[in-house]
């Protein structure tokens, strides 16, 4: 849905073409062509594999703004629907932020009476919304499950972190702040043996067993789904490609994270 507008503008693409929209010095993965969908696409517009390797994007296909957007959209939907926090899509976020900034400038340069300027600006605000909402949903989860998330994060190693640096700092600050507030209002007035506060016992846990709607992007075989009845055996399930199911989140958590299935 976000790409539709780029197709509309195809015939007159010179007016807002790549050279205007993309700053030549945009660094790293933002050096992508934004109108992959358009007829302007020539081999020279797509990045070479070797370039991508330098950029740290090891995908076989060259990354275009459209594909980044699509992938980010999936990540956003997953994040919005999953009960626990997923790993931070830092590359996509940075890339989109650069793109937005750049397109913002270009849209501003356009004649205001031009119909396309309005359409572009609206499309841009939609992408912006997607980005801010992604970050917002993550913050909400961090605030709600601060302790659980911080605990899990501290057990992860350098390359495998789920939070961005800013989010991690925010989580720590938020946790400390809330602790201090509880301490000063209530805990310090409690009789001494009760005055301790054990967040492990009292904090809210994400509802990992809540049911989610999922769609398999690839075929999955032998998925184990636990049953509620202790006497029955756990169910084993095969998911066909593109099939949709309602399953407890805990049974598919790993598959959501590696991108085999997505939440819907």
């Amino acid at each position: 849905m976000f790409t539709s507008i780029y197709i509309i503008t195809t015939p007159d693409i010179e007016l807002i073409n790549l050279s205007q929209l993309l700053h030549p010095q945009i660094s790293v993965c933002c050096h992508l062509n934004i109108f992959k969908m358009s007829s302007m696409d020539t081999p020279s517009n797509t990045l070479q594999d070797s370039d991508l390797h330098d950029l740290g994007l090891s995908d076989d296909e060259p990354e275009t703004a459209t594909s980044v957007l699509n992938k980010f959209q999936t990540a956003w939907i997953n994040e919005k629907l999953s009960p626990e926090i997923l790993s931070y899509q830092g590359d996509y976020v940075e890339c989109l932020m650069e793109q937005i900034k750049h397109m913002d400038n270009n849209v501003r340069k356009l004649d205001k009476r031009d119909l396309r300027s309005g359409l572009h600006a609206l499309e841009l605000s939609r992408i912006k919304y997607m980005l801010t909402d992604y970050l917002r949903v993550r913050l909400e989860k961090i605030e709600k499950y601060t302790y659980t998330i911080l605990e899990a994060e501290s057990s992860r190693s350098g390359d495998n972190l789920f939070l961005s640096e800013g989010e991690f700092q925010f989580a720590k600050d938020f946790f400390g702040n809330t602790q201090t507030a509880l301490q000063t209002i209530a805990l310090r007035h409690f009789p001494r043996p009760l005055a301790s506060f054990d967040p492990a016992k009292m904090s809210v846990q994400p509802p990992m067993n809540s049911y989610v709607f999922v769609k398999a992007k690839k075929e999955v075989s032998g998925l184990i789904v636990p049953t509620h009845d202790p006497e029955e055996q756990d169910e084993e399930l095969d998911l066909e490609e593109n099939s949709q199911h309602i399953l407890p989140y805990s049974s598919v958590a790993a598959l959501v994270k590696d991108g085999t299935i997505m939440l819907i």
């Binding site: 932020m97 900034k101 605000s125 912006k128 919304y129 980005l131 801010t132 909402d133 970050l135 917002r136 913050l139 640096e165 800013g166 989010e167 700092q169 925010f170 600050d173």
Partner: peptide
């Protein structure tokens, strides 16, 4: 502090 790290993206809007 967190939002400053995001190039001034204002999360409280929209």
């Amino acid at each position: 502090t967190y939002m400053r790290g995001l190039d001034g993206l204002d999360l409280t809007q929209e």
